[in-house]
Design a protein around this nucleic acid. Structure first.
Lengths: 342, 342
DNA sequence: TTGTATGCGTTATCAA
DNA sequence: TTGATAACGCATACAA
């Protein structure tokens, strides 16, 4: 079989426990035997068995990543690779490994996450989404498993460590930007309302309208289940209104791409006929035509901070609850204009 | 602490080994005691400890996913979420968990993967890329770890199970499509040439030109390191040629998006002035403007088959080497035209 | 500073 | 059909 701590011990003429201590770099071992043992490890090509270590330690040094259910087509969104990149960076730095939830339906994911936690495969999890009345979140809280949410928890946000943007302010500022450009008829195209991020951005949008003394019109609020088809429907609806909007706040770059696509088909020009501010500032915003003015929410950092917080929480379960707000920034490109106001 | 097999055993008045057999649904246990034990498990809220099981079994039931180094910005590409979705599906079906490589630089990933294999955290790995002279692939082969490659291995492809498209034919057909539209000056915009997929697509492109009796021009071959900047450079170069191309074969949707963006900035119309065929048929192809004619390579299926093959290989190390070719299909949209030929 | 013995939660072998 | 017991590879309390 594989070379174990015992083989190394024999080779170095020490006890297995000594080898174990050398691996942990215990200060109670003399430099001389450390050298001797390390040499033996090299010679034999020893690699520690994480599984055995996990069992002895009662800790796996693995973080679980919980994706939203892939029936929400959300996964197509460049948001996820980018958060995961952030998580991966922090995990790598702290020598944690990464495990992902599998399953497509919400219930499958729920079961899977419980198994990976109860089965001790992971020491804690990061939820890459936050929605209203999430069963999993309640379970985690009740069973006191270490977890961190990316986004704002629906309930008891004060008791749950989470990493989020100030989506309310971000949306408010984005809307204000359009107001400053002279727009008075601004519509909101958001994602599924059960996601908290949608709610916050909608509220920010509303607040900006109110402050600007603009009327809030129900018919200007759109919630796409998804991209292409939904986007088409929504835009048709918006443009067929007696007073169609001259500007859109779109809650996501990918969604905005769908909107752009639909507008193009309908021969509506951006930004000449209609202006768009979008969110996330993914690569798509840069690559779309026209390049999208988009709110950079620093996705990578969301992931990075989430992983760091989780690792702290795992190390110290009494770590106080944290709320980390990642700053945002409006990236101006070419999807906004005041021409249609002139 | 947590409820273990022993607790269940006590509660059900049986030996721990009996409980273990009930978990495995051994036929040598009477229905009666099975019921009794299962009831005890329910009552106590028992969950099996995977770590302990892994140690006893010498198998983790976890698959490792190896990403390309994120210094290759490739991760931004929707290709990855989609393969992973496919892998995830197969893994879930076979009750395998998924672990991801971390690290940014190639060397970090290399070390990480070795640790996760030697540390017995995973039973095998899937490489999501294939490049020339890959150190990791050699290591895996030499140490006889179960692995599967998505793409075509550089060397000894007959000895390595891999899942791939027929990229040569796909590119040939894509190019032929442009030839049939009447194009005679067709350029190739590919990714990093050290990736095998780029090589294959380039060869297919060349073959189509040859068959059509069109000259192969070195100045028509572009290799982008990445998107925006590279795309700009390349397009400028191509368009400043004495005889600029009237059509492009672009090796990837995301890259094509960059090309479209650049062309737009330069006021070149697609497809009126220049036609584009792209690859992968990700959501981007649908959402770009104009929607891209793109070769669907069935990314999900690539992942799905890769995971299934790996799991078979783990179960039976003597499983013969396989090469699975996933079919492709040209999806015609609106980025190609013969207008510029008229 | 190092060695011995025990436990982590399972599975599997051998008896009964 | 079931039970006792020894692995699996490592960490650690306790001895020396």
């Amino acid at each position: 079989m594989n070379v174990t701590i015992k083989d190394v011990a024999k080779r170095a003429n020490v006890a297995p426990s000594t080898v174990s201590r050398v691996i942990a770099d215990s200060p109670r071992i003399s430099e001389k035997t450390k050298r001797k043992v390390r040499e033996a490890m090299k010679e034999l090509g020893y690699h520690p068995n994480f599984i055995a270590r996990s069992l002895a330690n009662q800790s796996s040094q693995v973080i679980g990543i919980v994706m939203p259910s892939s029936t929400d087509q959300a996964l197509q969104n460049p948001f996820f690779p980018e958060v995961i990149r952030g998580i991966s960076k922090a995990a790598h730095e702290k020598k944690y490994a990464l495990q992902m939830s599998t399953g497509e339906k919400e219930s499958e994911i729920y079961e899977g996450v419980i198994e990976m936690l109860q089965g001790r495969r992971v020491d804690g999890v990061i939820l890459l989404y936050s929605r209203t009345n999430d069963k999993l979140m309640k379970y985690l809280q009740k069973n006191r498993f270490p977890f961190v949410v990316i986004g704002k928890p629906h309930q008891m946000a004060e008791q749950i460590t989470h990493v989020d943007n100030d989506n309310y302010r971000a949306a408010k500022e984005a809307t204000q930007y359009l107001v400053e450009l002279g727009h008075k008829r601004i519509a909101f195209v958001g994602g599924n309302i059960s996601y908290l991020v949608t709610v916050d951005r909608l509220l920010g949008y509303e607040a900006a309208l109110k402050e600007a003394g603009l009327p809030y019109r129900q018919e200007y609020i759109m919630h796409e289940e998804f991209l292409k088809e939904g986007g088409q429907e929504a835009m048709k609806e918006l443009l067929s209104l007696r007073e169609p909007p001259t500007a859109l706040v779109v809650a996501d770059d990918l969604m905005a791409l769908g909107v752009l696509n639909t507008l193009d088909e309908m021969n509506v020009r951006v930004p000449e006929d209609i202006s768009i501010v979008s969110f996330n500032n993914t690569l798509l915003a840069e690559l779309s035509r026209p390049p999208l003015t988009s709110v950079d929410i620093h996705i990578f950092q969301l992931g990075y901070e989430a992983a760091k917080s989780l690792i702290e929480k795992i190390a110290n379960p009494n770590e106080p609850v944290k709320r980390i707000i990642i700053p945002h920034q409006l990236m101006k490109r070419f999807s906004c204009d005041d021409d249609q106001m002139k």
